[in-house]
Amino acid sequence: MHQRLDRLRLVALNIDGVLLNDTFSPVIGAFVTSRGGVYDAETERRILSQPRRIAGGEMARAAGLDVTGEQALEIYFAERDRYVAEHPIRPLPGAAELIARVRDLGLAVVCYGGLSRPHFDTHLGAWAHLFDGPGYVCTDSFRPGIKEIAGDVFGLGLDQVLFVDDVARVAEAAKALDVPFIGHPSSFQRAFMEELGVRHLVDSLDAIDEELLRTLDAQAAAGGVWRTAPVS
């Protein structure tokens, strides 16, 4: 029987890039560069984890397309469908084990992301019983959704929820709110997270072990999640 954690009560796991393989960044990059645009860290930062209405416009601008954001998204999702046909969406290695570790520590687990509920049901529906509350929270209308998931959905304090995400924009919001955070970033996003001073960056879900979870819990209990210490 594991000893109960002091402060954390919920772990919120981003769906794409944390629980599932990232099928967004590669397609966004190709969308931009195939049309002569430059896809770099700053471009990615302007697009990822934005509401669709903003992301579509940023994609069109980066690609040099004279179309609306909505039209850009229609083109993008058609290209993503072709990409997914060759690179199927799948749970990342260690995803199921991570959820089990979190639950074994007595913590609730929820999944969140920018796509609507059917995306979760299709690719993680078999795991739905492992998640708490609504199971999945679509954050498109209130991205990044930290305050909403913690307070509105679960009625918890901001220091009681640990977020795991692959995008620096979410890390930036977590830092502003002093919310517990673990980064699981791509190469571009890693650089931004390091600049932000993210204390805990992992390259695999296996690295989010009991020791790391207890470290985040101790930092949350002490009220110093983002205040000191170098990136680990």
Rank of each mutant, 00 (worst) to 15 (best):
A207K: 01
D81C: 10
L13K: 08
F188M: 10
W226Y: 04
R80G: 00
D165T: 12
Y136F: 12
R35E: 00
D6A: 15
L107F: 04
F163R: 06
S49V: 15
R80D: 00
F77G: 00
E195I: 04
P144K: 08
R45D: 12
L19G: 11
G37P: 01
S204P: 08
R82Y: 13
P118F: 04
D206K: 10
F77N: 11
R199L: 12
G69D: 04
L20T: 01
T33H: 07
S25R: 13
P26K: 06
G64I: 00
V202Y: 07
R190G: 04
V18R: 05
G106D: 06
S49Q: 14
V27N: 02
M193H: 10
I15F: 10
R35T: 01
G94M: 01
D203E: 12
V67S: 05
R103V: 06
T33S: 09
G114N: 05
T122W: 05
L212D: 05
H200D: 15
A95Q: 04
D81P: 01
L73N: 03
P134H: 01
A108P: 01
T215Y: 07
F188C: 04
L19H: 08
V18T: 08
G57C: 06
F24W: 14
D166G: 02
R90P: 11
D66V: 14
L196N: 04
A191L: 11
D165L: 09
T139F: 03
A207N: 08
T228I: 09
R143L: 13
G145A: 00
S141L: 14
F120H: 03
R80A: 00
Q71S: 14
Q219V: 04
V198S: 03
L216R: 09
E86D: 15
A126W: 08
R4F: 07
S232F: 08
L130K: 09
P88W: 11
H2T: 14
V109R: 02
P134Y: 02
G114K: 00
G125A: 11
D159H: 10
A173Y: 01
L107S: 06
F31S: 01
R46H: 09
G223H: 05
D159P: 08
G106I: 02
L156W: 06
L177I: 12
Q160E: 15
L19Q: 10
L156I: 05
P134A: 01
M193W: 08
T43Y: 05
L48M: 15
L92C: 10
L130A: 15
H200S: 11
Q71R: 13
D22T: 02
L158T: 10
A176G: 11
W127H: 14
V67Y: 02
Y112S: 03
G183F: 02
R103K: 15
R52K: 15
G106V: 00
E194H: 13
W226R: 08
D203R: 11
E70A: 15
L177V: 09
I54P: 02
D16E: 12
H2Y: 13
R82F: 07
D132E: 03
R52N: 13
S49K: 10
G114Y: 00
N14M: 03
Y136I: 07
E210A: 12
L205E: 00
R9W: 05
L13R: 04
A221S: 13
P230A: 14
A150S: 13
G157R: 05
V27K: 12
G64W: 00
E97R: 14
G223W: 06
Y112M: 02
Q160K: 02
A126R: 15
V18K: 06
R227Y: 06
I54W: 00
L158Y: 03
